[in-house]
């Protein structure tokens, strides 16, 4: 499959989860640009939890997640002067966080599980349709199961389903092909359901 280059603006539009604070944020962001420590703390309070969970899903380790979160906030406060309201602040911040987290994981040189190119990654697994009783899985159980996935699975799965990236974008930021992204995703999903069935 051909990987076409995506514009970063398209990427941004996909990642707008935290938009509700956008307007009230403007004043705080302005103060952050002046280096106001109180305003920086306000921003931290608003976003730390959500961003920490992003870090945790990508790194899969609480200590690493905290290091990454710290680093990402420092980068964000340093670069905040370049933030021009072109996207929701949350989305802008999340991009920094995801990048920092991926850089952290890359240091580990994680491997994507080997792919058999014949594998039917287009398979949306209809024969494994989730039974209604399985819908009662609490998000918490699923979250814990995601944490048990190997690096490659967990990252692709989280980026696609929770951080709102599409396979094209995932392929780009991870430097893999779109087909690898899709197959990793599908295999991650199967593995996840296996873990949950136990």
């Amino acid at each position: 499959m051909q990987v076409s280059v995506n514009l970063s603006t398209a990427k941004m539009s996909k990642v707008v989860d935290i938009t509700q604070y956008q307007n009230s944020n403007e004043q705080i962001i302005l103060r952050c640009k002046r280096g106001d420590r109180k305003a920086q703390y306000e921003i931290y309070k608003l976003y730390a939890k959500a961003m920490y969970n992003v870090c945790l899903r990508i790194t899969g380790d609480t200590l690493e997640a905290e290091d990454v979160l710290q680093e990402a906030f420092l980068i964000a406060f340093e670069k905040i002067e370049t933030y021009r309201n072109e996207a929701a602040f949350g989305a802008w911040l999340k991009k920094i966080v995801v990048n920092a987290a991926l850089n952290q994981v890359r240091k580990r040189r994680f491997q994507f599980a080997d792919i058999d190119s014949n594998e039917d990654y287009e398979d949306e697994s209809p024969h494994e349709a989730i039974a209604t009783e399985e819908m009662s899985y609490q998000a918490e159980q699923i979250r814990k199961a995601i944490a048990q996935l190997p690096d490659g699975f967990r990252i692709v799965f989280s980026l696609y389903l929770l951080e709102g990236y599409d396979h094209q974008e995932i392929a780009e930021i991870l430097g893999i092909s779109v087909s690898t992204s899709k197959s990793q995703y599908n295999r991650a999903k199967k593995k996840l359901q296996e873990i949950l069935k136990k």
Partner: peptide, 15 residues
């Protein structure tokens, strides 16, 4: 519901 974890309280101090 997947954003259920909390970072360490002391993290802001470090930042």
């Amino acid at each position: 519901a997947f954003d259920s974890e909390e970072p360490n309280d002391l993290l802001w101090e470090k930042i």
